[in-house]
Simulated assay, not measured.
Amino acid sequence: MRTYPVTYKDRFGEESTTILSDGSTMCLTLRAIEFKGIDFEMLSGKMDHTQFEYEKYQDGTGYLTNFEMDVQFPIKINSGTIADSGEITAHIRTGREKETLVSLELTTAFGKFLNSKKHEWFEDALIEIQQLLPQKCRIKSCLSCRYSNYHPIGNGMFGGLHCFRNLKCEARHVSNKGELMLLWQKGEEENKIFNVQEIYDCPEHAFLTQKDWAYKSWS
């Protein structure tokens, strides 16, 4: 379990808290209410309209909305054979009143790197940061791993990757969307795949290569 400091802000006020994450699900407590979810746009908990705004559905459920967050994530960077570490501050904005956007700032021992614009997807924001890094510096995270993919039918702003490390051999031979969907179905039936966050990493990480096919924009 990892802990990420958070500054949360909405029309009801501002507070500091922490996110607990296992790499798939996030948990955080705001104003004495616990919220859980895989995406910043899919945080759910006990509904209290006196303290929060929600994206509501006909079945009575709803997700937290119309807020901003600054979240600090540690992240690993490889420079040749040398492993370094940095910290990414992610500014998240969600809701109908304000367009959902994300922007990142990476702080390292060799400088700071910021998005030139706000993005709709965490994937695109992290890819821009990678493109700003010095040559041979590579972000080591689930997004850059050869064993992760997004589903061809789409994904949310954050945390929509799925990990195929339990199907490594099959994953290495996927070469198109049809094959990915078949492997996805097998992974779900055998309970061998699970969602992961773009900035997470594990000991089984392997960088995506030019020979690998992947349904994501990382290269």
Rank of each mutant, 00 (worst) to 15 (best):
Y4E: 11
V6I: 13
T7K: 07
D10G: 02
R11A: 08
R11N: 12
G13L: 03
S16I: 15
I19S: 00
I19D: 03
I19R: 01
L20A: 08
L20M: 15
S21Y: 08
S21I: 04
S21N: 03
D22W: 10
T25S: 03
M26R: 05
L28T: 03
I33K: 01
E34D: 13
I38H: 09
E41W: 02
E41K: 05
E41Q: 06
S44G: 14
G45L: 10
G45T: 09
G45F: 10
K46T: 08
M47T: 07
Y54T: 05
Y54L: 08
E55N: 10
Y57S: 05
Q58F: 15
D59N: 11
D59T: 06
G60H: 13
Y63N: 04
Y63E: 06
L64Y: 01
T65G: 03
T65M: 01
N66W: 12
N66V: 08
F67D: 01
D70Y: 13
V71S: 00
V71M: 07
I75C: 12
I75K: 06
T81C: 03
I82N: 02
A83C: 08
A83F: 05
D84G: 02
D84N: 08
S85F: 01
G86I: 06
E87D: 15
T89S: 09
A90W: 08
A90Y: 10
H91A: 12
R93W: 11
T94C: 09
T94L: 11
G95K: 05
E97H: 14
E97C: 13
E99T: 13
E99W: 11
T100G: 04
L101Y: 01
L101M: 14
L104P: 10
E105N: 14
E105S: 15
A109Y: 08
A109M: 06
A109D: 12
L114E: 02
N115A: 13
H119Q: 10
H119F: 14
E120D: 14
W121H: 15
E123S: 07
L126P: 00
I127G: 00
Q130I: 07
Q130M: 03
Q131A: 07
Q131E: 10
Q131F: 03
L132A: 10
L132Q: 14
L133F: 07
L133G: 03
L133Y: 04
P134G: 05
K136A: 13
K136D: 11
C137L: 08
C137H: 12
R138L: 00
L143E: 04
R146N: 02
S148W: 05
N149D: 08
H151V: 13
P152L: 11
P152W: 01
N155A: 15
N155E: 15
N155S: 15
M157Q: 07
M157T: 12
F158V: 13
G160R: 00
H162D: 10
F164Y: 15
F164E: 03
C169K: 04
A171N: 08
V174E: 02
G178L: 14
E179S: 10
L180H: 01
L182Y: 09
L182C: 10
L183M: 12
Q185M: 07
Q185G: 02
K186L: 04
G187Y: 11
E190G: 08
E190W: 13
N191V: 07
K192E: 13
I193W: 02
F194G: 07
F194T: 11
V196P: 05
Y200L: 07
E204M: 14
E204Q: 14
A206I: 05
A206Y: 11
F207W: 13
W213E: 02
A214Q: 06
A214D: 06
A214I: 02
A214N: 04
Y215F: 05
